[in-house]
């Protein structure tokens, strides 16, 4: 008769079974890696509407002399190259427009203390980047008040 093997306490492994835990942890890690949205480092430009008038004061009217209106014109042939005009003067690039705005910015406050706004009047199809660029230039040049000359937009198609 074969001799029964004697029970050896050191043969029994006391280690925990790690495999299921590692499986779960990996699942968790993959979930978080796929779903992660890092807190974005976004910024903002303030563009307040006239506080007590809503849009009433930003309707398009014929420009008056005391107003600075940056006209952003969309061109079908080159949608990325927005044309920029103030009055009859056309600017070849953003740098020239910035220099112009910087020069006139200190003159935008009247003797009575009123601030003359710079209005950004963009065509409907002009891309947002161009409008934000114009707004950015105004902020950098020290313009105190910037407004959008908003036309009544066409009703969206259902």
């Amino acid at each position: 008769m074969a001799k029964r093997k004697k029970y050896q306490p050191e043969d029994i492994s006391l280690a925990l079974q790690m495999t299921p835990m590692i499986d779960v942890i990996f699942q968790l890690m993959i979930f978080f890696m796929c779903s992660i949205h890092f807190k974005s480092l976004e910024g903002k430009l303030y563009s307040y509407l006239p506080r007590d008038k809503g849009m009433a004061s930003t309707q398009v009217v014929d420009p008056i002399l005391d107003e600075v209106r940056i006209k952003l014109i969309y061109s079908e042939n080159a949608p990325l190259l927005t044309r920029m005009k103030i009055g009859d003067q056309e600017f070849p690039d953003w740098g020239t427009l910035y220099s112009y705005i910087r020069n006139i910015a200190p003159k935008l406050r009247t003797m009575s203390g009123d601030v003359i706004p710079v209005k950004i009047d963009a065509d409907d199809k002009v891309i947002t980047q161009a409008v934000v660029h114009a707004l950015n230039i105004c902020k950098k040049a020290g313009v105190e008040k910037t407004e959008f000359a908003a036309k009544t937009s066409p009703k969206p198609k259902k």
């Binding site: 903002k44 506080r51 409907d124 980047q129 908003a150």
Partner: peptide, 28 residues
């Protein structure tokens, strides 16, 4: 950045009618 401006105009218009004036434009 590539959205046509008239969509922003729509939001501005609606904000104007709702008398919401504190508008912020997201930029990077």
């Amino acid at each position: 950045g590539s959205a046509p401006f008239h969509l922003i105009t729509r939001v501005l218009e609606a904000a104007g009618k709702a008398l919401v004036w504190k508008l912020e434009i997201g930029a990077e």
